[in-house]
Design a protein around this nucleic acid. Structure first.
Length: 314
DNA sequence: CGGATTTGACCGGCGC
DNA sequence: GCGCCGGTCAAATCCG
């Protein structure tokens, strides 16, 4: 299995090529939209078009897979990635490269949010006691931030995306020799977090999960120096490197968004294109409504990237 | 010296 | 009820 990945990745990219059939956007390599723009919800249709024009390059963002596909991710990553396709009986072997879903607050780590609420309450109360020792209102549905999970072939765990992150935790991953790292955006009052872990089956694959939306632009200092990030990725992910992005400072972000927007998440049988036309877009879940509030431009985007931002309701 | 990282402890949720 | 697990905190440590 160790020599499988190359073929595997090539297979991933076969459908990926279909993006070029979407139009002539590839002739606009100079216009980019960043992944962080997506996180901020600031993308619009025009920028999306430009984004689609990007070509694969300095890194590979891989489709979520399950054990049957040769690459096994941790339970956590599979939970996130698999959640996108949980509405079908199909295994998670789609061509999608980026997985995401917005949660409605009913899932897993509500304790974390509760902690944050407690912290805020504590501030109001004027006390910052050690740890949390105050029972809080229970039963409250805590809204979760939208999350984007994706797999990237990279030698470095912490992928540079233009923002500044502070590591605040690391945990051993069950059934994996590789730890999971927890990062938080260092910008004041920005609550975006991300988790980074490595596939234990294929250590060259990094699974990154973003949670929340940045409420600020990319730090200017990093924008200016981000060329190093591009170089880093160009060197760390040699496959499918293209000059267009290799030398560009935000190549990684661009790659992410590009592939987010061009790789429908759940439709294994449609040949990797069709832009999610198979999705029941007419149904609007509560989390979709919530997302609409956060991403006002999504109304323009949904026809193009219906599956990128939402986990379909069963 | 200030900011970032490390790491063990702690908490709440969840499954059995 | 108990134990496991994911996620977070925060003191200690590291580093530029």
């Amino acid at each position: 299995m160790s020599d499988e990945p190359t073929d595997l990745y090539n297979n991933y990219f076969d459908p990926f090529q279909s993006q070029y059939q979407y139009g002539d956007f590839r002739h606009n390599p100079g216009s980019y939209i960043s992944f962080t723009d997506c996180l901020q919800g600031s993308i619009d249709y025009n920028s999306l078009e430009r984004a689609v024009g990007l070509s694969p390059s300095s890194c590979e963002v891989l489709p979520p897979v399950d054990g049957s596909a040769g690459t096994v991710v941790s339970d956590h990553a599979r939970e996130i990635i698999g959640g996108l396709t949980s509405d079908s009986n199909n295994p998670v072997t789609q061509n999608s490269s980026i997985s995401s879903y917005s949660e409605d607050g009913t899932e897993e780590d509500s304790c974390k949010n509760k902690r944050e609420i407690q912290a805020k309450d504590g501030d109001e109360g004027g006390e910052t006691s050690s740890k949390q020792n105050k029972p809080k209102k229970r039963g409250e549905k805590i809204q979760r931030e939208p999350r984007f999970a994706f797999m990237t072939k990279s030698e470095v765990d912490h992928l540079e995306d233009g923002y500044r992150w502070r590591k605040y935790g690391q945990k051993a991953v069950k059934n994996s020799p590789y730890p999971r790292s927890y990062y938080r955006c260092t910008t004041h009052k920005c609550t975006v977090k991300k988790r980074v872990e490595r596939s234990f089956q294929d250590p060259s694959i990094v699974i990154t999960t973003y949670e929340g939306q940045h409420n600020h632009p990319i730090p200017a200092t990093l924008r200016g120096s981000s060329s190093s990030a591009g170089q880093m990725f160009a060197s760390s992910m040699p496959i499918h490197t293209s000059p267009a992005a290799a030398g560009h400072g935000q190549s990684f972000s661009h790659q992410l968004l590009l592939q987010m927007h061009t790789r429908p998440l759940h439709h294994p049988g449609s040949g990797g294109r069709g832009m999610g036309s198979t999705y029941p877009l007419t149904q609007t879940s509560s989390r979709q409504q919530q997302f609409h509030e956060q991403y006002p431009d999504y109304g323009l985007l949904q026809d193009m990237v219906p599956s990128v931002c939402f986990k379909q309701e069963p």
